[in-house]
């Protein structure tokens, strides 16, 4: 599903959450990176039709979100997993999905029940389908969340910070699940965890203070740290020049990876950057790149 965003602005009183966002998303899995407060959640909410924009144009699959008709048309093809998904603790996953299915317009009882069963299988919750949600762990709740988002076989999936608070094993499992869903869909993954994007997305955008700093291939973002990423091995104090991205203590000393425009020490050696280092280099440069 093609998404076109032009000069999108959203204000909350005196606070500007989005300040002239231009973005194009074509299909597959798209990662939206940014620090907390960058405006990611506001952008996700606008795309999901939860919040109206203050100004600008958002067209999703040919539907203009500024009209009621366009919003409903998108919501009929949308699966949305909000950052804070409060479930109904008195319901079982089956009952919860049945209810959301009805609200999504899945009127045929047999078809709805069949889809609920299939999705519980997909997210690995069939064994606990009859248990109340109040006893579910954070990871299980997230899986219920993704199952409800997939009801009605949406062509656009928006997931906002889905891996926050999950343990490493659950996070990997969730990422793999999201990747497997991206085949015929557009999946928009908003996160501040760079690793999630590195492992799942080919396209990405970086948002900071309500503006797009970067949009393009993940490899291009990684390339932003080419020639400015260094490794230093020292038993002494950490380098003060540049941004220390990682520090691993080994027997020969602590291995520091540093993003810095010049060698942070005479014995620093240049190394191939990771996406995280590309992201750090971009944020550090603080010069917005041309969008496109």
């Amino acid at each position: 599903m093609h998404i076109e965003i032009a000069d999108l602005r959203r204000r909350f009183g005196r606070v500007t959450a989005l300040d002239g966002v231009d973005l194009t998303v074509s299909g597959g899995m798209f990662g939206l990176l940014g620090t907390n407060g960058a405006g990611k959640t506001t952008l996700m909410r606008i795309l999901a039709g939860v919040l109206p924009a203050t100004s600008g144009r958002v067209v999703v699959g040919g539907n203009d979100l500024s009209t009621r008709g366009g919003r409903v048309a998108v919501q009929r093809r949308l699966g949305y997993l909000p950052q804070e998904l409060g479930l109904y603790p008195d319901l079982t996953p089956t009952e919860f999905l049945d209810y959301v299915g009805l609200l999504k317009g899945l009127d045929d009882r047999a078809a709805r029940r069949g889809q609920v069963g299939d999705l519980l299988d997909l997210v690995g919750l069939s064994d606990v389908a009859g248990r109340k949600l109040k006893g579910f762990s954070g990871g299980m709740r997230r899986r219920v969340g993704i199952a409800q988002a997939l009801l009605g076989d949406p062509t656009l999936l928006i997931v906002d910070e889905p891996t926050v608070g999950l343990d490493p094993e659950e996070r990997i499992r969730f990422r793999t699940l999201l990747s497997s869903l991206a085949g015929a869909r557009t999946v928009l993954l908003s996160t501040h965890i760079v690793e999630d994007v590195a492992q799942t997305c080919r396209q990405t955008a970086v948002l900071a203070a309500g503006r797009v700093l970067f949009t393009g291939q993940v490899t291009d973002l990684t390339a932003r740290a080419e020639g400015v990423t260094w490794e230093i091995v020292t038993a002494g104090s950490p380098p003060t020049d540049g941004v220390v991205v990682s520090a691993i203590a080994r027997t020969d000393g602590t291995h520091y990876r540093v993003v810095s425009p010049r060698p942070p020490s005479p014995d620093a050696i240049p190394v191939s950057p990771s996406l995280e280092e590309g992201y750090v280099a971009l944020m550090r440069s603080a010069t917005p790149l041309p969008v496109g």
């Binding site: 949305y80 109904y88 009805l102 609200l103 999504k104």
Partner: peptide
């Protein structure tokens, strides 16, 4: 309403 944001994203 514990699922307010989800409700607002639904066609109903």
């Amino acid at each position: 309403e514990t699922c307010r944001e989800l409700h607002l994203s639904l066609p109903t």
